[in-house]
Computed example of a mutant assay.
Amino acid sequence: MSQRYPLPQDDAPLVVFDFDHTLYDGDSGSHLFKWLIERDWWRVLLALLVAPVAGPLVAWLPTRRAGISVFVWVGSLGVRDRAALDALIDRYVVTHAEEIKARLLPLALDVFHQHRERGDNVLVATGAPPELARAILAFVAHEDVPVIGTLLGPKLGGMGALRHCHFAMKMTMIRAAGYTQPVARAYSDSSADLPLLQAAAKPVVVNPKARRVAMFRRVLPPGTPILNWGCPGRAGDAPA
């Protein structure tokens, strides 16, 4: 059962959390799509065939949505609508609950709890499908918060990314969802979330890649915290 928190007031500070490498150690969408692909031998073979083209697309920011869509499509061939995909996502979360729980970062969840206990308006905005982050938070972490994520829809007999919640589009989708107030605080690991971090009055970088730390120090306000919340292999200072 979800813990009871104060209901955020209309003027409550808006606090936005990324999900992957922020609350969760890893890329939750990749873990889901890997499971979807590995359900059938022919999906594995098809993924191997498209990987030489789709893999480089994922690695390059301007084509990332197209590359991700290819693997989503392979894993979801035969899935005709969002309801069927959401049912598969829920099944994945339920059957992998212990593995997922081990990937949720306790320090991150402590900060998450603190904001909710203060009555802040807490939102998760992620590049993963929103049902995935929502199911993980509800079933594994027992948290119920609004989630904005990459929108998937029918495409060529499977599902594909219609709107990728990534880079500037993340802020666009947050505003389109009705969150028009200033962002009081934002937490993210990724340079792809610079528009979100730069929109926040108090950005906090958590679990960044080591090679990105200098860039964050250069483009974000002096004194911006750069922390490691227990994500192995990532940079950042230990929290006080």
Results as ranks from 00 to 15, higher is better:
Y5V: 09
Q9T: 13
D11C: 08
A12F: 08
P13G: 10
T22E: 06
D40Y: 05
R43V: 08
V44R: 08
P56R: 12
V58R: 09
L61D: 15
I68D: 00
G75M: 06
G75R: 02
L77A: 04
R82E: 15
V93Y: 02
E99G: 12
E99Y: 04
I100A: 01
L104F: 08
L109Y: 09
Q114L: 13
H115C: 11
D120T: 10
V122W: 00
T126I: 05
A128N: 13
P130D: 08
P130E: 05
A133M: 09
R134L: 07
I136N: 01
F139R: 13
T150A: 09
T150Y: 04
K155P: 00
A161C: 14
C165G: 03
F167P: 00
K170A: 04
M173H: 12
A186Q: 04
D189F: 12
Q198R: 15
A199Y: 07
K202Q: 14
P203I: 02
V205E: 03
N207A: 08
K209I: 12
A210E: 02
V213P: 04
F216E: 02
P232E: 03
P232V: 14
R234Y: 07
A235L: 10
A235G: 06
G236A: 05
D237W: 03
D237K: 08
D237I: 08
A238T: 15
A238Y: 04
